[in-house]
Every structure is written in C-alpha cells, then in structure tokens.
C-alpha cells in the first residue's frame, strides 16, 4: 500500500541521535555530505560510511527500514552506474565488444559513485528518521533566519513547509481511503495499458484535489480565528535547546571530516 513509503518519514524513538538539537543535526548532516563529496578515494568514502554506520547504531533505527528507503532509488542507481560503466574510459580495458568498452577507470568510477549515492541516502534518511518534521522545519527556519535581513520571507517559507509536511500523512491516508472506495466500486488500478492506467487515476485525483482545497480553506480559517498574522513578534512554545552532546557530536563529525582530508592528501 501507499502507506509503505518510508523516504522522509519520522521514526519515533528516544536515542541519543533523536535527542540531538535539530539545528546541529542539520549541520552535521551537511558536514557528512561534504565528507562524501570531498573524499577522492573509495577509502575516504568508507570513513564517511563508518560515520553513518555508527550514527545508525546509536539511533536504534532498524536496518531494514534504511534498506527500504533505498529501494525507490534502485532505478536511478542502475541508470547512473550503467552510464559510468560504459562511458568512462581509461586504464586497462576489461571487456571490448562492438561499441561497448568496460575499462578499469569505468569500473572504479561506477563503484565510487554508487557507494557515494547509497551513503548519501542513508545519511539523509537518518536525519529525517530521527527528527520529527516539525522540529526539522523549526531548525531550518532558525538556520535561515539571517536571510531575513535581506527581506526573505523565511518564516512564511518555514510555515509553508511545516504545513506541507504535516499534510503528507493526511493526504496519503486520504488517497488510501479514496482508492479503497473506488476499488469497492470496481475500479481497477493494477491492470491495463499505460493510457488506461493514467485514466484510472482520475477517480482518485479529483476527490483528492477537492479535499485538499477543502482542508486548506478550513486550515486558513482556523489560523485566522486564532489570530495568526505571520512571523512578526511570534514566540515559540518549544524552544530549541543545544547542550554539551550537540557540541560533542559536531566535534566528532569534524574529526571524521579532517581524517578524510588527511586521507585525501596521503592516499
């Protein structure tokens, strides 16, 4: 069912990783991504992988869930891998047949890219698995707040994101319900040609849009009734707090980054 989509979904828990300040978590994730991009060899990548692996163990997120979030990326992964494999040449030639040439550099690059993408996904899904969407947008708003100086509507942007994230599960549930209802009326979404399948979506999409608009209207009205007037002078119920563990975690992350830089120089 649609409910099984896991990418970008929060997985409640009470581990150290869950309790980190979301602002630091975002920064740490960014450093982690930087690690993966600056490492020039496969060894560097493995140091990054080790970091993600440790964080994964600390977070107590089931490994199965992480694998599940990788599943939708398999087509992209295969696509880039095939391109790299056939179009990068250099070093020894392993296979040569008609226009296909597989070379040493090609194989290396393919492995390197594939591992990088996989680690990238693992790291970023760890962030969303361990941080509730609401605190995540709070943190983003905080981190982007310097942009307010140049008149960027940061608060409005964060509010829109919060609302959008908040309604993802609602709309998924709604889609499930509408699908069941139309299936009960004999609608068939699983067979037929491409055009037929696209047509079969109409009975789902129209009620979904109707209800999304209805919800938006209700929400806007409810917010107005509670005197919502934008970000000006607004205070928070739950203040974001940072402590020793956040600085520690960031320090450890920077150490990993440094070790990759050193690896780059020597390997």
């Amino acid at each position: 069912m649609i409910k099984d989509i896991t990418l970008g979904q929060y997985f409640p828990g009470n581990s150290v990783v869950h309790r980190l300040d979301p602002r630091f978590k975002i920064i740490i994730t960014m450093i982690y991504i930087a690690m993966l991009f600056i490492s020039s060899s496969i060894f560097g990548l493995f140091v990054g992988g080790l970091f993600a692996f440790l964080a994964l163990i600390l977070s107590k997120i089931p490994f199965k869930l992480i694998l599940k979030s990788l599943k939708p990326l398999i087509p992209i992964l295969l696509f880039t891998s095939l391109f790299n494999l056939f179009f990068i040449s250099g070093g020894d030639v392993y296979i040569e047949w008609a226009f296909i040439r597989v070379t040493e550099d090609g194989v290396n690059m393919t492995l390197y890219m594939a591992i990088r993408i996989i680690f990238l996904i693992i790291g970023s899904s760890l962030l969303t698995y361990t941080t509730s969407p609401i605190t995540l947008t709070d943190a983003i708003e905080y981190l982007l707040s310097p942009l307010k100086k140049i008149k960027m509507p940061v608060h409005e942007f964060a509010m829109m994101m919060t609302i959008a994230l908040r309604f993802i599960p609602t709309l998924i549930e709604e889609t499930d319900k509408i699908m069941s209802a139309q299936k009960a009326r004999g609608a068939d979404f699983e067979s037929g040609k491409v055009m037929q399948r696209i047509k079969a979506l109409i009975p789902i999409l129209i009620p979904l849009f109707v209800s999304a608009f209805r919800r938006a209207e209700d929400l806007a009205l409810a917010m107005t009734c509670r005197c919502y007037h934008g970000g000006e002078g607004r205070t928070r119920l739950n203040q974001l707090k940072s402590g020793t563990k956040d600085y520690m975690a960031t320090a450890i992350t920077i150490m990993f980054l440094l070790s990759i830089i050193i690896l780059n120089i020597f390997v």
Partner: peptide, 22 residues
C-alpha cells in the same frame, strides 16, 4: 461497500455519470 463520508469519493462531472461508474 459504502465508506464513511462517501460523498468525498464523488468525482464525475454529472450525478448520472458518477452513479454509472460502478
């Protein structure tokens, strides 16, 4: 099977066509 709030699953342009869907 008629679901809760079944009116939310209505999608056709006319009443006639919506009843005819099933």
């Amino acid at each position: 099977l008629v679901f809760q709030y079944p009116e939310y699953q209505i999608f056709e342009e006319t009443v006639y066509r919506d009843i005819a869907f099933g």
